[in-house]
Design a protein around this nucleic acid. Sequence first.
DNA 1: ATCAATTTTTAGTCTGGCTAAAATATTTTT
DNA 2: AAAAATATTTTAGCCAGACTAAAAATTGAT
Lengths: 221, 221
Amino acid sequence: MEVSVSQENYLKTILKLERSEGIASNQAIAQNLDSTPAAVTGMLRKLCEEGLVEYEAYQGAKLTQVGEQHALSTVRKHRLWEVFLVEKLNFRWDTVHQLAEELEHIGNEDFVNRLAEFLGNPLFDPHGDPIPDAAGNIRERVDVVFSSEAEAGTMFVVCGVSDSSDEFLRHLNRLGIELGSKYHAVERFEFDGSMEWSNNQGARILISSGVSEKILIQVHA
Amino acid sequence: MEVSVSQENYLKTILKLERSEGIASNQAIAQNLDSTPAAVTGMLRKLCEEGLVEYEAYQGAKLTQVGEQHALSTVRKHRLWEVFLVEKLNFRWDTVHQLAEELEHIGNEDFVNRLAEFLGNPLFDPHGDPIPDAAGNIRERVDVVFSSEAEAGTMFVVCGVSDSSDEFLRHLNRLGIELGSKYHAVERFEFDGSMEWSNNQGARILISSGVSEKILIQVHA
DNA sequence: ATCAATTTTTAGTCTGGCTAAAATATTTTT
DNA sequence: AAAAATATTTTAGCCAGACTAAAAATTGAT
């Protein structure tokens, strides 16, 4: 029962949609994979035959147990490789996605587990996304909110982003924001929702609402 | 100019044959890749069009400069991954070939060079095969001969194998022979070419001619 | 010059995934 | 509840990449 690269990408997408929407519609899958609904129907049939998704015509798709395990394993590999690339090979966090996208399709469970072990079984990837453990469990973070919710006057630490696109990450790079950066929310301008932050050297930056809504933070006690 | 996985395997094979036979015949390529001469002809045409091999009908194939660089880069990746798998992930040397075969097709020059750097720019892989540097140079070993040539009475160290198949490496594992193992050539039996070796604990093993002809050694001064 | 071995051509197969357009279901609106 | 809008599926076929089997052509050796 070999799962192709394309199939693994479908499984990952369905997992994501199932978590965010409850069910993966044909159209949403097509959009995510830059494909068409007709193509999706064909693939869902195959995945259903192989026992990876539950699928009835017109009812959208859900992963089976087996399918979900497989998808989680792929996500695990992807995020572990990102850790490897950033921590061991000194890649910047905004340049690792594509490479990890290729590496995630290689090897078996044993291989992934050894990689995880080698990396010290990290819990989060360089974008702050949680890494499923060998059994597929994801420890969701608590006390994490979008930076747009930060009250003026609070201190916080950047712990993730909800958009890992190259463009967004490069923008954060230009702003000097990275995982673990600490800031003080100086003020929110109700006019357009933008915010002013200051770092521990006192330098101030202006953050647009679009950006602050994509940055995950943990507020300091 | 994208080079497919299959094409990279052709380039690797042609490189190997060119080094051992001077030119890569259609038939030899087919044998190596477990394919047929007709299929090889088709692929050679494509590789020729893409400027990766020099090819004239009925005359066999040779790599161009570009093709050779590409092949060497693939070999470099393969061998570096083997080092990674054995040294960092604790795989046994007889279990890494298949995985490296998949990993070798991923990523660009920058990626490989960072991997090499991370591994300390090793010169040999876990089977004793030399790793090309970033420019494609291979430092060939000197004073290396097949163990079948060892004179009775000499001491030597195992530094490579000419057959990296799973079966052969597993056999060496059962015999307790690995890279860096030191032995004393006790005697060669002219009857069938088999040899008796002893290690530094005095334990003796019998090596068939078939095996001794695939083990590379360096004789101690 | 002929024959054996090798290589190429021809013609077609197979897989995996895709598309476009038509047909069918479902959902929403009124 | 019927009509309209939306979403999904079917149909039919394309396309790339790599392969095969058998026939034809070429080469090289004697």
